[in-house]
Design a binder for these strands. Sequence first.
DNA 1: AATTTATTGTGAAGATAATAACAATATTTT
DNA 2: AAAATATTGTTATTATCTTCACAATAAATT
Lengths: 217, 217
Amino acid sequence: MSNDTVKIPQATAKRLPLYYRFLKNLHSSGKQRVSSAELSEAVKVDSATIRRDFSYFGALGKKGYGYNVNYLLTFFRKTLDQDELTKVALIGVGNLGTALLHYNFLKNNNTKIAVGFDVEEAKIGTTIGDVPIHHMDELEKIITEMGITVAILTVPAPFAQTITDRLVAANVKGILNFTPARLTVPATTRVHHIDLAVELQSLVYFLKHYGVDEEEE
Amino acid sequence: MSNDTVKIPQATAKRLPLYYRFLKNLHSSGKQRVSSAELSEAVKVDSATIRRDFSYFGALGKKGYGYNVNYLLTFFRKTLDQDELTKVALIGVGNLGTALLHYNFLKNNNTKIAVGFDVEEAKIGTTIGDVPIHHMDELEKIITEMGITVAILTVPAPFAQTITDRLVAANVKGILNFTPARLTVPATTRVHHIDLAVELQSLVYFLKHYGVDEEEE
DNA sequence: AATTTATTGTGAAGATAATAACAATATTTT
DNA sequence: AAAATATTGTTATTATCTTCACAATAAATT
């Protein structure tokens, strides 16, 4: 982990990719400058929060003017390491896994699913999009060879922990977990959960029990 | 919105479906009682946080004993309205939409995708799983007829806002948004985002810039 | 029935995050 | 070049969330 700047709050860090994406949009639509108020409207984050977020990286804007789109974009590209391609492994090529293979992560982020793994013989040796699918038995060998340290986990829940253990042993440091299982990992590995059923159910709960007054992340 | 109990913190509300799922697991494995410490190990949430979360609903446990699994389960089933089926519309039957159609939300939550919409003629009139796919032109008509107020949005980003406007006009109150677009909605509509590219990119960012010491939600 | 043990529920403290508000100041207009 | 305007960066404030720590007390053991 490079610790070039002061450590950024997690809430801020999670918004950075979002800012980056909208700055790219602005840039390609030819916009030269942008204020925190405009950006706020686009990304639905309070303008004071945006200014605060940016301020962790120093004074990026100019008073009375706003932010130079090009400058900001260049700055965030470096900060988010967009010049360096991050290769990711996809574990479990079922319905969801296949959908993710077709999802173009590369377009907005310099992240690419470089390899997939499954146990179903019909899939082994094929290519989905341009991603080769290998047998799960080769997991350790191939991701080690490819130097992959980030994995997306889309296997059936009962296999999630076992495969996680193998990923950890193979030096994977980050797991995007789409299974409902809550994974046990060492402190050196980071897991982000995307729990589809929980997301849907908590949305329903909010609708029934809360007055709705704004969206939230 | 029913406001039967005191308003629960949002962070707590988001964890309720998770607790519910694990309680179901415990129950079906025959467990009679559980402590906050055990539950903590399973769901990876601090035990004090679990006790605090539960305490918003009153004193559900017994000192020196823990919680009765069956009692908790019954309580949460009511609280999460699990006895009442929530029908959901899926807008956009592409790769991701199709994967979600095959995802069994019903298993753990009383939530079901009841209808899908797309513009591709080949899909109209077919059934995926047991879910009928209709033309997008019929959106308002059908979801109004079916009394649906929750939608999952998996259309290409450029169409997201237009379709959202139509959903809102057709009385949809909750949207689970898988598109990268940040939607503009009235204060009476709630949007939850699942932004796959942002999730992946922020995971990569955390790996590079932070010492990893625990997982987080 | 007395003692030990386990575990809750919660007050207090701490940590993190969001927002308001405004002085400072760069840009734009006159 | 002076005045008016726009907008940042940040200090202060408030809100939300997490965790510690422990008295209270129910259950289990002796």
